[in-house]
Amino acid sequence: MNLPLQVYDFIAVLFPGVLLLGIVKREAPGLPIWNDGMQFGTLALLLVIGYLAGQLLAQIARTIESEPTTSWLLQIGRRKRRRRGRLEGRLSSLRFTTQLNEAILSSLSDFYGRPVQPNDPDLFNLAFSPVQDKMIKRDLFLALANMMRSLAVLGFFYGVYLAVEIVLSLVLKWQFDLYAIPLLVLSLLGYIFFRRGFLEYESIASKIPFLAFLAWYRQQKMLKG
Results as ranks from 00 to 15, higher is better:
1 M>H: 11
2 N>C: 11
2 N>H: 10
3 L>S: 08
4 P>Y: 11
4 P>A: 10
6 Q>C: 12
7 V>T: 13
8 Y>N: 09
8 Y>L: 02
14 L>Y: 02
16 P>T: 04
18 V>W: 05
23 I>G: 02
24 V>W: 01
25 K>G: 00
26 R>V: 07
31 L>A: 11
31 L>H: 05
32 P>V: 07
35 N>P: 05
39 Q>H: 03
40 F>N: 03
43 L>V: 15
45 L>E: 09
45 L>I: 15
47 L>S: 09
49 I>D: 07
49 I>Y: 06
51 Y>R: 04
51 Y>F: 15
52 L>R: 08
53 A>F: 04
55 Q>Y: 12
55 Q>C: 10
56 L>I: 15
56 L>N: 10
62 R>K: 12
64 I>T: 13
65 E>G: 07
66 S>I: 11
67 E>W: 12
67 E>P: 06
67 E>H: 14
67 E>K: 14
76 I>K: 10
81 R>Q: 13
84 R>T: 13
90 R>C: 04
90 R>W: 06
91 L>T: 14
95 R>L: 14
96 F>T: 10
99 Q>N: 08
99 Q>R: 12
103 A>L: 05
103 A>I: 01
106 S>P: 07
107 S>Y: 02
109 S>E: 03
109 S>W: 05
110 D>Y: 15
111 F>E: 03
113 G>H: 03
114 R>A: 06
118 P>F: 01
121 P>D: 01
123 L>W: 01
125 N>Q: 12
126 L>S: 00
134 K>F: 11
140 L>C: 06
143 A>H: 02
147 M>Q: 14
147 M>R: 11
148 M>I: 02
150 S>C: 06
152 A>Q: 11
154 L>R: 01
155 G>R: 02
156 F>M: 08
158 Y>M: 09
160 V>I: 15
164 V>W: 05
165 E>M: 09
168 L>G: 09
175 Q>N: 06
177 D>E: 09
180 A>D: 13
182 P>L: 14
187 S>K: 07
192 I>T: 05
194 F>T: 14
197 G>R: 01
200 E>C: 11
200 E>R: 10
201 Y>P: 09
206 S>P: 03
207 K>G: 07
209 P>S: 03
210 F>D: 09
212 A>V: 13
213 F>V: 08
216 W>Y: 13
217 Y>R: 13
218 R>A: 11
223 L>I: 06
